[in-house]
């Protein structure tokens, strides 16, 4: 055992005797004890609002006059790699859409969807957009089939909202399941 050939000077010896390094370590952990936590108290108290670029649940948009932007061109259906979108177009003269052709059925099977966003890219009228809703868990497979009416409804997070923050939220339980309701007024920056 000739391993202990350290050149210990007086300073190092004193440091060892008075546990200087150990006490410094204690102070580091003490500071961390009272620092802000990185834990996101997700369903109960806080919720992460994603940025606009987030690819969550699909939305079908309307223009400023409230007309459906979707013209039923079926490009989204053709571009979908997992073939989870079903579009059935129909002629419509009532002016519900921006042209005389709208989607009769527009269905997406979220069990197959992988949120790649190719449908969004393919859409010529910018009707289809992947939104910021990400709580999609269900108790029945049937509820993963989203139809046009549900997707046309306004999303919980407005488009004007920038996102990228944690907001106050509360968890609500009822017969249908769980829901986390965000409160946009109280915001917190990510750690």
């Amino acid at each position: 055992m000739n391993g202990n050939h350290y050149n210990l000077n007086l300073k190092d010896i004193l440091k060892k005797v008075f546990f200087v390094d150990l006490i410094q370590g204690l102070f580091i952990t003490f500071n961390y004890t009272f620092s802000k936590t990185i834990t996101l108290r997700y369903p109960d108290e806080e919720k992460w609002i994603p940025y606009r670029r987030f690819r969550g649940l699909h939305t079908l948009n309307r223009n400023k006059e409230g007309k459906e932007l979707c013209v039923g061109c079926e490009l989204c259906q053709k571009s979908c790699p997992t073939q989870c979108i079903t579009v059935v177009p129909m002629q419509d003269k009532t002016g519900k859409g921006i042209a005389d052709r709208i989607a009769y059925r527009w269905e997406i099977n979220l069990l197959r969807c992988m949120f790649c966003g190719l449908c969004e890219d393919a859409c010529p009228t910018e009707a289809l957009k992947l939104g910021r809703e990400y709580e999609l868990a269900n108790t029945s497979m049937q509820r993963s089939l989203w139809t046009k009416e549900e997707l046309l409804a306004a999303q919980e997070i407005p488009v004007e909202f920038d996102g990228g923050v944690i907001v106050r939220a509360r968890l609500e339980r009822d017969d249908k399941g769980l829901k986390v309701i965000p409160d946009m007024s109280v915001q917190k920056r990510w750690w």
């Binding site: 961390y32 802000k36 108290r41």
Partner: peptide, 11 residues
């Protein structure tokens, strides 16, 4: 928990 910047038991 707090030393490791977590919260510890919370639920």
């Amino acid at each position: 928990g707090h030393i490791q910047v977590r919260l510890g038991p919370y639920r």
